Amino acid sequence: MLLNIILLLIGFVVLIFGATKLVDAASSLAARLGVPSIVIGLTIVAFGTSAPELVVNVFAATTGSTEMVLGNVLGSNIFNVLGILGISAIIYPLTVKTNTTWLEIPLSLLAAIAVFIVAADVLLDGTAPNIITRSDALTLLLFFLIFLVYNLMVAKGNTDEEMISTENYTVGKAVLFIILGLAGLILGGRLIVINAVNIAEVIGLSERVIGLTVVSIGTSLPELATSIIAVRKKNVDIAIGNVVGSNIFNIFLILGISGSIMPLHIAEATFFDILINILAGFLLFIFVFTGKGRQLERWEGIVLVTLYVAYLIYLLT
């Protein structure tokens, strides 16, 4: 048990280190090749922050741990909104831009609802079992492509977009760090999945609960760090955009890829988590319009964090 916990923690460190090095090296190489800064930000950097969830889910899907696949995606999204945005808003109120208010936040809510639609076969179609099929997963990936094109079009028309800061690596060094980053992702992801499953078996918790708590929080650490740093620097657009974008990536891209690898059977208990994810997205949208204009205030952040703590207590008791 102790060894599993140590290896799990090592897995998180190696996974996040690998993702960071991969993003830094790939961004540096892309900049040397003349790729526009905004394209680097919307592709390499955005993919990099979701890489931990993606790698863990690929390993979980290939080993048949489908409860962990869904637990990691749903847990990450719930933690992103209730935990990360809640903490960020408590530190400093978050002002939300018009595009984020009317397009990205509603799209993240749509993504949460889409999970319910593709999962609820018994309720909606009268057929059993509840399962996210490969065709469902491919549909999610098509939505991701639409979101990616939308982002690129918005960025193209935004002449005030800030430059993305990149490391100044030589080509050889960048390639080396890309290889090391990928190796870190693979090793860390494998350590996390294997040891999380072992811990779940020892302490009697389901893979779903381990995925919703330990694994999802661990893989969301890059988003947590990015948002807190951004808020402390008063870059509130980055804080909220980082979380909303990650939620969309998690469902359309990561769940789409995971379901394409192996159809995902949905346990009855998972529908509670799906509904909590929808509730979190709905609260975020509503809170933007309460209080002082398009802003997530401190009291709203406290509400979000309180709800997340209550959700964790429910899962673990």
Rank of each mutant, 00 (worst) to 15 (best):
V81W: 00
I132F: 06
K97E: 15
V96E: 12
A128C: 05
L109M: 13
D136W: 05
A120L: 07
I87D: 10
L110S: 14
L107H: 05
I131M: 14
L138A: 15
L109W: 06
T127S: 13
F79I: 04
T101C: 11
L124T: 00
V81C: 04
D121E: 15
S88Q: 01
I90Y: 01
L85R: 05
A119V: 04
D121G: 12
W102V: 11
L123D: 12
L124R: 00
L107N: 13
I90S: 03
A89E: 10
L140N: 06
T98K: 15
D121Y: 02
S108H: 04
A112D: 13
P106Q: 07
Y92Q: 13
A89Y: 02
A89V: 05
L94F: 01
L124A: 08
A119Y: 00
Y92A: 12
P106T: 00
A114T: 13
I78Q: 12
A120D: 08
L123G: 08
S108K: 05
T139Q: 09
L123R: 05
L123I: 08
A137G: 06
T127G: 03
A114H: 06
L82T: 04
G86M: 07
N99Q: 13
I105Q: 04
V96C: 07
V118R: 00
A111E: 12
L94K: 05
A112F: 08
